[in-house]
């Protein structure tokens, strides 16, 4: 034992020395990763915690149970925002899927100028939602944009005033959002179409399948996984939409185009009701999880199936 002790000390000292020498390395590895992971976990937990407190202008401790949630969900702003989200989300996702798919199929016909066309369909993605919203607010403004142009051309009865129509205003957000991101759906679908097995297509053609049958029976079914991915990403975007509405309608006319993200902002920074804002943010997160968790489970199942095959 008496001999073993100095040896152990020496060993541990060597260990400490090499650990010290490797300290910068550990720091480079761990500091950014811990900052990123740490802020995500602590911020999420903290916001969840605040949503259960009676905080108003400043965060305070205390426990009020689900009171903030029930009162947020009882406000007219929230119910309108959530109804709008359902309308906007389904309209936007379906339209951009449809347009994206049609564009991808058309571009896949070995047409000339494909590169130029693809760039045209994708350039809106490079522009900020603020710019998109501002520009569409001009185009859709009845006293300024499309309606005024058509009226000025002589068709004075023409009306295109969704922007100031409470019932239709949400569709102006759909238009702008589809313009901005249907190119993204196109890009993913096009990649999918390009990876369809050529032999499969040839075999179907030899069997006498016409173009429509070929697409319906052979090609489109292979696009399922991509479609699901596109839907999930577009839904994620729809649920968190904020800038576009701020720039296009500001939530109006009245509160006709509110979306959850605007309600969160309103509670937190305009009314100074932190706990309710936090509760609304958590509700947004839950909506997102309702989309993402099934998707994650589906992907996991797909991967296991692929591994077994």
């Amino acid at each position: 034992m008496t001999h073993a002790v100095p040896a152990a000390v020496q060993l541990s000292r060597q260990g400490t020395l090499s650990a010290l020498r490797r300290l910068p390395e550990y720091l480079t590895i761990w500091v950014p990763l811990l900052l990123s992971a740490g802020h995500l976990v602590s911020f999420a937990l903290w916001t969840i915690w605040v949503s259960f407190t009676p905080s108003t202008l400043l965060p305070v401790s205390g426990w009020v149970g689900l009171r903030n949630y029930t009162s947020v969900m009882a406000t007219r702003n929230w119910t309108i925002a959530f109804d709008n989200l359902l309308l906007f989300g389904s309209g936007f996702v379906l339209l951009s899927l449809l347009i994206g798919l049609v564009l991808a199929i058309l571009l896949d016909q070995r047409i000339r100028g494909e590169n130029v066309l693809r760039s045209i369909f994708l350039y809106p993605m490079a522009v900020s939602f603020v710019v998109t919203g501002t520009v569409w607010s001009w185009l859709l403004n009845p006293g300024l944009g499309i309606q005024k142009l058509v009226n000025g051309l002589g068709w004075t009865a023409f009306r295109f005033d969704w922007l100031i129509d409470r019932d239709m205003a949400i569709w102006t957000i759909v238009i702008a959002a589809v313009w901005q991101s249907s190119g993204f759906a196109m890009a993913l679908f096009l990649a999918g179409l390009r990876s369809v097995d050529a032999d499969l297509v040839k075999a179907a053609q030899i069997d006498g399948a016409g173009p429509i049958r070929l697409y319906r029976r052979v090609i489109l079914p292979t696009l399922w996984p991509i479609t699901v991915t596109v839907v999930v990403i577009q839904l994620q975007f729809a649920i968190t939409t904020f800038d576009l509405v701020r720039a296009l309608t500001g939530g109006g006319p009245g509160i006709a185009t509110l979306l959850p993200a605007l309600v969160v902002y309103d509670f937190m920074f305009q009314r100074g009701l932190l706990a309710r804002g936090a509760a609304a943010a958590v509700l947004m997160l839950l909506t997102l999880l309702a989309v993402l968790l099934p998707y994650a489970a589906w992907q996991y199942a797909q991967r296991r199936k692929a591994a077994r095959a």
């Binding site: 999420a44 916001t47 932190l274 804002g277 943010a281 947004m284 997102l288």
Partner: peptide, 11 residues
């Protein structure tokens, strides 16, 4: 995936 709204107050 974590929405910005969940990080606004902590930031």
């Amino acid at each position: 995936f974590l929405p910005q709204q969940m990080r606004l107050l902590p930031w």
